[in-house]
Design a protein around this nucleic acid. Structure first.
Length: 277
DNA sequence: CATTTCACCTGGTGGC
DNA sequence: TGCCACCAGGTGAAAT
């Protein structure tokens, strides 16, 4: 579900509601899956810290946390949230009913509650002590800010399909199945093309297409194809502008040719056979 | 190494 | 209505 635009939208919403608030209570599920940091430890180390800021890097949401009992910078810890396929991060009033599959609840000094809900449990929560470890860094480059040369260099030696390369988070961080398909459509490139066979002009078209689509999707609050919602429980609107993703058999918005679906890198892949070469 | 495949989970949909 | 196959925004380990 959540790719860069959805994660950015959620991070902004949480930042708006909870910046400056303090974690006073922590409840975590008994199920083991969602935790990269053991829950017993995470419950202890989060309590008492103020949320200084919340931001996104790649598909990860990063909470900058004060030292326990402090209320201002510097951040001495980070809480990292990855939403997986079906994860939600919701800011709720504590009396609001609990959604099924709620795995974490952070009670705040303001009385609000931050809730992590994730039916499939592919999401992950992690605590980083900045006294012991480096600040979180996504492995790949940011697609919104990478320049033309470094972007082209990412794909130079790769024989794999360009779509598989776009999904590789160690090259670019934040691109997932929706925005890979949509940006390849916009750039007029078939998803199955070998990455190292793209021309310089094609790669630059792809970089621009990706950037424009991601920015537009952020502006529209992301894509809600099934159940994605932001920190306020609101759906996004970019799904209304999808050209190929999950439009199999429907007419291309440019040339009316039916959109095709193939399997690539194990993922459903959608493209227009006439517009994309 | 680069690349591919599969397991990890729940839930929704559509065919019979 | 039930049962079953298939599909879904992601990733990381194992196999090739």
């Amino acid at each position: 579900m959540p790719e860069l635009p959805e994660v950015e939208t959620v991070a902004r919403g949480v930042d708006q509601h909870l910046r400056g608030d303090r974690i006073v209570r922590v409840w975590l599920t008994d199920l083991p899956q969602p935790f990269k940091t053991p829950p017993a430890r995470m419950g202890k180390v989060l309590a008492g810290r103020a949320i200084l800021a919340v931001h996104r890097t790649g598909k990860h949401i990063v909470f900058e946390l004060s030292a326990p009992g402090e209320k201002s910078a510097p951040a001495t810890a980070q809480w990292i949230v990855h939403l997986g396929m079906t994860g939600r991060l919701l800011v709720a009033e504590s009396e609001q009913p609990l959604a099924p599959h709620t795995h974490a609840r952070l009670g705040m000094a303001s009385g609000r509650e931050l809730r992590f809900v994730d039916p499939r449990r592919f999401g992950r929560l992690q605590f980083l002590d900045l006294g012991r470890t480096q600040p979180f860094q996504a492995p790949g480059a940011e697609p919104l800010t990478i320049g033309a040369q470094p972007f082209a260099a990412l794909f130079g030696g790769r024989k794999t399909a360009i779509k598989a390369a776009l999904l590789n988070q160690t090259l670019l961080s934040g691109v997932g199945n929706i925005y890979a398909d949509e940006s390849l459509f916009r750039a007029g490139i078939r998803p199955s093309r070998r990455a190292n066979r793209l021309t310089g002009a094609e790669l630059e078209r792809l970089r621009q297409a990706l950037r424009q689509i991601l920015k537009r999707a952020i502006r529209l609050g992301g894509s809600s194809v099934s159940d994605y919602v932001d920190a306020d429980g609101e759906r996004g609107f970019f799904q209304l502008e999808h050209c190929v993703y999950q439009r199999t058999g429907q007419p291309c918005r440019h040339c009316q040719t039916p959109i095709r679906r193939i399997l690539l890198a194990g993922r459903g892949t959608h493209y227009c056979p006439k517009c994309q070469h």
